[in-house]
Simulated assay, not measured.
Amino acid sequence: MFERILVPTDGSGPANAALEYAGEIAAEEQVTVHVLHVVDPDEEDDADELLAESREWAGGTDATVIDEKRTGEPRKAILEYAANNGIDAIVMGTRGRRGVGRLLLGSVTESVVRDATVPVLVVRGASEVKRRYPFETILVPTDGSVHAEVALERALAIARHDDATVHVLSVVDVTPAAIDDRNDLRLERLENYARDVVDDAIAAAEKSSVDTVSTVQYGSIDKQIRTYADEIDADLIVMGTHGRSGLDRLLLGSATERVLRTAKTPVLTVRASTDDRAAD
C-alpha cells in the first residue's frame, strides 16, 4: 500500500498516537517510518530527546524507523522532506474537539492536507478512536467530482490490498437550500444526482472486483459522515481535496475540518493531481 511513511512529531499525545498507528501499519507491511521533528530556530532545541522518545513509540511495533531533524517553518519542512525522500504517505495526529496540536494541527495540518501531493492520514489521539489495521471496512463520501473519484480510486486500491469492503456515501445536504418539504422539486433533483453519483461509484468498484455498498443519507454532511462511519464500524474514511483552490465542494471547509477533528475513525485525504483537476 505504502512504502515510506512520514510522521511529523512534536512530542504531543496526538503525535504519539499517529506514530504508534504508523508503526503498526509499517510493521504489518514491512515498510519504513520516517519520524520528522521540525525545530523552530527561535526556540530551545530538544529534538534529540523528542526523537528518541518518538523512535520508541514507532519502533515498539517492530517497524523500521528513520528519525530526522529539520530547522524552519513546519509546513514547508514537512512537504520538502516528503518530496525529497520518496515519501508516499504522511500520518499526522490531531487533538480533536478542543483544538489542535501546537505543531501538527490548525493551520499546519490544514496546509499539509491541502498542499501535499501524497495522501495524508489524519488520526485523533482520543481513546475513543478506532485505529485498526489491516482495514476491513472503508468509507468514501462522494459528490461525483474528480476529487471524489480520485479518493475512490485510492480506497479501491487499499480495499484490494486488504480484501476490504468499500462503502460509498452521498449526502443530500438540504440545509443550504432551506429545503424542509420532502415534496420539494429541488430535493428530488438533489436525490437523483446523489443516486447517480453512488451508482457510478459502484460501477467503478465492480470493475475492480471490490465488494461495495452504496447509500444516500440526508442532513449535515459532516454529521452524516461520522454517523454512518460509526454505524458500519469503519476502519478508514477516504476523502478527496482540491488542493490550493480549496476543499472538495461536497466536503468543503468547516465540514472537512470537523470530520478530521471529531471522527472516531482515521481519515485519509487524497489530493487530485493538476491533470485530474484540468479534466474535471
Results as ranks from 00 to 15, higher is better:
residue 249 R to Y: 03
residue 181 D to Y: 01
residue 270 V to F: 02
residue 157 A to H: 09
residue 257 E to N: 05
residue 93 G to Y: 07
residue 200 D to Y: 00
residue 264 K to N: 15
residue 64 T to W: 11
residue 275 D to N: 11
residue 84 N to T: 10
residue 40 D to W: 05
residue 165 T to F: 09
residue 192 N to R: 15
residue 227 T to G: 06
residue 262 T to A: 09
residue 45 D to M: 05
residue 268 L to H: 10
residue 229 A to V: 01
residue 107 S to D: 00
residue 235 D to Q: 13
residue 178 A to K: 08
residue 242 H to R: 15
residue 66 I to M: 13
residue 65 V to D: 07
residue 126 A to E: 13
residue 82 A to S: 11
residue 256 T to L: 14
residue 108 V to L: 10
residue 74 P to E: 07
residue 46 D to Y: 14
residue 217 Q to F: 02
residue 106 G to L: 13
residue 129 V to D: 06
residue 198 V to K: 04
residue 226 R to Y: 08
residue 119 P to D: 10
residue 127 S to F: 07
residue 145 S to A: 12
residue 211 D to F: 01
residue 172 V to P: 03
residue 21 Y to E: 02
residue 125 G to D: 00
residue 90 I to W: 04
residue 130 K to N: 13
residue 102 R to L: 03
residue 257 E to K: 10
residue 163 D to G: 08
residue 27 A to D: 05
residue 274 T to I: 14
residue 236 L to G: 07
residue 11 G to M: 10
residue 61 T to C: 12
residue 277 R to I: 11
residue 239 M to Y: 05
residue 94 T to M: 06
residue 219 G to K: 08
residue 269 T to P: 06
residue 161 H to Q: 12
residue 134 P to W: 01
residue 91 V to I: 01
residue 148 A to N: 01
residue 99 G to K: 09
residue 122 V to E: 03
residue 46 D to T: 14
residue 279 A to N: 08
residue 115 D to G: 02
residue 278 A to T: 02
residue 146 V to N: 08
residue 202 I to K: 15
residue 220 S to L: 14
residue 204 A to I: 11
residue 180 D to H: 12
residue 43 E to N: 09
residue 169 L to N: 02
residue 252 L to A: 15
residue 274 T to G: 11
residue 15 A to W: 06
residue 214 S to W: 09
residue 146 V to G: 09
residue 133 Y to S: 08
residue 199 D to W: 12
residue 261 R to P: 07
residue 55 R to V: 11
residue 203 A to F: 04
residue 8 P to G: 02
residue 218 Y to H: 04
residue 5 I to F: 09
residue 21 Y to D: 00
residue 141 P to L: 08
residue 113 V to Q: 04
residue 124 R to M: 04
residue 211 D to M: 03
residue 98 R to S: 14
residue 37 H to I: 08
residue 256 T to F: 00
residue 87 I to A: 06
residue 145 S to M: 11
residue 87 I to T: 13
residue 280 D to W: 14
residue 27 A to L: 05
residue 2 F to C: 14
residue 263 A to K: 07
residue 34 H to V: 12
residue 155 A to C: 13
residue 69 K to L: 05
residue 54 S to L: 03
residue 203 A to G: 06
residue 222 D to E: 13
residue 155 A to S: 13
residue 148 A to F: 03
residue 38 V to A: 01
residue 236 L to T: 09
residue 55 R to E: 15
residue 142 T to P: 01
residue 140 V to L: 04
residue 99 G to T: 09
residue 115 D to N: 08
residue 203 A to D: 05
residue 6 L to Q: 04
residue 55 R to I: 09
residue 29 E to N: 07
